[in-house]
Amino acid sequence: MIRSHRLFPILLILITGLLTVWLDVVSRWQPNKRDLDPNKPEVVADGVMATRFDPKGMLQEKLIAGRMWQYPDRTESYFESPDLQSYKNGVLAYHAIGESGRYNSKTKQALFDKKVTLIQPATANQQETRVISSNMRIDTIRHIAQSEALTHFYYGKSSGSAVGFIYQQQAGQLQLLSNAKVTYEK
């Protein structure tokens, strides 16, 4: 009798311990969670068109791509033949067409890491501007495009080149960082 009397608390501790371990394991177990390979895309989409609207409901940004993919736990999306279009009051302000690129949804920065063409359409008092480079970074919040590479630009019949540029689209400022050349044609 005495033995069972002493055995009961030990058994009770043992059972409680087992119960705690079991509950811990169960609470962590996620039915479909499997360890993803960080170097393999978690999501792949073909023929993508993503659209963003401004608070007034007008078209603000459109991203068209042949293919888009994303790696596990990363905020960057990768694109093949992306066409990033930026609108102002629903009117196309500029768009950048590249061979490939990536977009960070947290910083809102787009990086075109291969040949890319930035086009600002003609307006009533400005001719079309085209900027072509081998890579380009675009801040889609401040609407600034820049590159350190050799870049060619075309403005109406005039054309030019430079090594490195910064283009502040809203201010209409194009800075040519070095080896600047331009040919004005009427």
Binding site: A162, G172, Q173, L174, Q175, L176, S178, A180, T183, Y184
Partner: peptide, 14 residues
């Protein structure tokens, strides 16, 4: 045509 070359350039479109 007018050809201009320089170390740096700054175009103000507006």
């Amino acid at each position: 045509p007018i050809e201009i070359s320089a170390d740096r350039g700054n175009l103000d479109q507006l």
